[in-house]
Design a protein around this nucleic acid. Sequence first.
DNA 1: ATGAAAGGTGAGTGATTAATCGCTTTCTTT
DNA 2: AAAGAAAGCGATTAATCACTCACCTTTCAT
Lengths: 204, 204
Amino acid sequence: MGKPHEERKEEIIRKTLELAADKGVTRLTTQAIADRVGIAQSTIFKHFKTRDAILGAAIKWISSQIFSLLEQTSKESSSPRERLHHLINRHLTLVSKHKGLPRLLFSDRLHLESPHLKKAVQQVMSTYMKRVSEIIREGIEEGQFRNDADPEETARCFVALLQGLIVRWSIFDFSFPIEKEGEELWRFLWSSLAPSQEEDRDPL
Amino acid sequence: MGKPHEERKEEIIRKTLELAADKGVTRLTTQAIADRVGIAQSTIFKHFKTRDAILGAAIKWISSQIFSLLEQTSKESSSPRERLHHLINRHLTLVSKHKGLPRLLFSDRLHLESPHLKKAVQQVMSTYMKRVSEIIREGIEEGQFRNDADPEETARCFVALLQGLIVRWSIFDFSFPIEKEGEELWRFLWSSLAPSQEEDRDPL
DNA sequence: ATGAAAGGTGAGTGATTAATCGCTTTCTTT
DNA sequence: AAAGAAAGCGATTAATCACTCACCTTTCAT
């Protein structure tokens, strides 16, 4: 017999993300997934009820990865500045390890075909921005970031920088090392968040 | 008889962009386009050889709009700071007027099905970043921007901020006024580009 | 031993979709 | 007026795709 249900399910999700990276969501057919897993196309439906259920499971997996990223960062005992820096690195490492992630998240098949999955993605983004804004607020209170920065506003820009970089990376077919550009992104962010010398001298 | 060739062609491109905004690229079938234009599906092919040719023409139209945006900004006699600010506003106004733009540019059908169109998009992005870096370099030389900023690096972050904002706007179904968030984006950018007081005092 | 359940297969089915084709109508040119 | 081109139409075609179904094989609990 074949592999047990749960194991096969995980395998299908894994291969689905691989395929999304290689061929895009449009070519992400049940036949293509089955081929890569090494089973018949019809067998796919022994493990998932519909094709959308596969995409849903993949999105859920991605979400859990990103949430664990956020949690890991929130728990960290280091300074807000370091936590933000680490979050960028962790995020880009995750994405570069799973290139199918941006392809899936930005695909319109996901957004306009199944409102349920869209909601899930929106949820992740909202939570992400909230967490980042908390870190920034903390940094401002500690006097590590300039005190005229708006936490929510800056958090939105933080996420935009990440998303924008990832989109460009995806459009240019993953042809440059994204981790390196993450450092440049951090420098830019820091130049905006760093307090001026006068503030710095301020004893509070 | 119907409308003349060129006129109908433009109409098809226009309606295609509208449809991309409403239904996404996946639902952008020749039937859907024909319905919106008010002609038979087969008539579409009197004006375009293939469906991809329609997408190609739409991309070309978008590119020309963005290029004219860049040119307009470059020609402007105002300061680099004001030009950057205006570029953001003009870009977001263009995008908000044509919501199909991001949907088309980020669709994987475009990227992985026709390498030719992908190249065109990459070209636009590269040119865009180059132009922005030129403005930034100018601003640094004039002492209007902090002199430790790297023009290329900052240009990449500029584009990432814009793209990231547009992606989020698209994911959240255009549900917030993007022009307003453009201002917030500009504030963030400026806080990173503005020279420190000491530099400011520096007579050069 | 046996029979049910799990995992797997190949051969379909119906829906969707880009593209073709033969034909008609309308306008322009000679 | 006749000819030809341009713009349009309906019907059709071939391909693709998600999903179903009847059947097979292995495993394992009774």
